[in-house]
Simulated assay, not measured.
Amino acid sequence: MHLLGVDFTSAPRRAKPITVAHGRLDGERVVLEALETIADWPAFETLLRRPGPWLAALDFPFSLPRAGITAMGWPSAHWAALVRHVAAMDKPAFRAALDADRQRRPMGARYPHRRTDRPAGSHSPMKLVNPPVGLMFFEGAPRLLAAGVHVPGVHDGDAQRVAVEAYPGLLARAVTRASYKSDTRARQSPERAQTRGRIVTALEAGTALADLPLRLEAAHRQALLADGSGDLLDATLALVQAAWCARRRSARYGCPPDADPLEGWIATV
């Protein structure tokens, strides 16, 4: 099975593309084979429609918290109904709905979380800024549904094209809490480059995600270290999460049996 790790953005462009790490499992190792950048939505949609078998771990929230969905009166019977509802909205309407929900909530509890967000340490998908993960859901989830991919524990689609939700920060924090990236060039420091080096070394040793070492060529290793934005490293971290799920193909790709089918689940949590 071909594996993909995808570092996502809600506004892909040449200066800030979607980044994809391609690889495979070779025995007990994950092999990084290629790095790809995608600068527009049509190219991303083409990626999702590439013939399988493949498994992609994509770094954006596939759903919203059940508490937020219910409070806004949005469809909650199943994930596809929710996503179709969102796909029919324009971005200003989506923003306005999430803003209104936030204003209704008390200070200190304005962003509900999914069950999977707390153990992952991830942001609430209701956030629209710093980071704008709500917009990532708005752009990403409808494209998953339109492409007909299979989302384990959430949506039955093409079993040859499987998508799981990734969160690279979960693996990075298993190595270090130090910052390793910045989109601001002035903040892309030697210290952050050294931290990326620590993370790559842990990936190669199989300690970032236990017993799943990464094999990569020297040129790819240098690219991960040189990329101050951290996008290439995040895509590679997502690739390792994809490999973890591929190993658990017979058990819903690792999706826990009690995962909320509306909220979804973050790989390796």
Rank of each mutant, 00 (worst) to 15 (best):
Q160A: 14
R215K: 12
T46C: 13
A202S: 02
A39R: 11
L47R: 12
A141N: 05
D59G: 10
A246S: 07
G206Y: 14
A141Y: 11
V30Y: 02
M136E: 13
M1E: 08
A77G: 10
C245L: 06
A218T: 14
V240M: 11
T70E: 15
R249M: 03
T184C: 11
P106Y: 10
R249I: 11
T195Y: 06
A202Q: 01
A81P: 08
A15Q: 15
A172H: 07
L216C: 03
A81K: 10
H2Y: 13
R185C: 09
E36K: 08
I266S: 09
T70C: 11
A77S: 14
V269G: 15
A218H: 07
H22T: 10
D227W: 09
W265M: 00
A163P: 03
R215L: 11
D211Q: 15
R105E: 12
S63D: 12
A226H: 12
A57T: 08
S179N: 15
G27E: 02
A21W: 04
P112I: 02
T207K: 00
D211R: 13
G148L: 03
A163W: 14
L239R: 00
E165L: 07
A163Q: 01
D158P: 01
P61H: 09
G169K: 02
G121F: 03
L239P: 00
G73N: 12
A77I: 14
G5T: 00
G264P: 03
V129P: 03
G140Q: 06
R66E: 14
A223V: 07
Q222P: 02
R105W: 08
A166K: 01
A166V: 05
P17T: 13
G23S: 02
A109L: 12
A208W: 02
E28G: 12
I266W: 08
V269T: 15
L35S: 01
A146K: 10
L128K: 03
R185E: 15
V20W: 06
P256A: 02
R185W: 15
V164S: 06
L224N: 09
L225H: 04
R115H: 13
A205H: 11
F94L: 03
L48K: 04
F138C: 00
T184V: 15
A251I: 12
A193P: 03
P112H: 03
V162I: 13
H123C: 02
S189K: 05
D183I: 14
A178P: 07
M72E: 12
Y167W: 14
R221N: 01
D258Y: 06
G264N: 08
R50P: 09
N130C: 13
A210C: 09
L144H: 03
A97E: 09
L262H: 01
D101S: 10
W54E: 04
A80M: 07
W79Q: 00
A219N: 08
V20Y: 08
L128M: 10
W244M: 00
A267Y: 11
F138E: 00
R104P: 04
A67P: 04
K16M: 12
A174Y: 11
M107D: 15
L58D: 06
V129M: 13
G68Q: 08
V240H: 05
P132T: 04
T195G: 05
A246N: 04
A193H: 12
P131R: 09
A226F: 11
I69M: 07
L58F: 15
R14Y: 13
R104H: 14
I69H: 02
A259C: 04
R192D: 09
E36A: 01
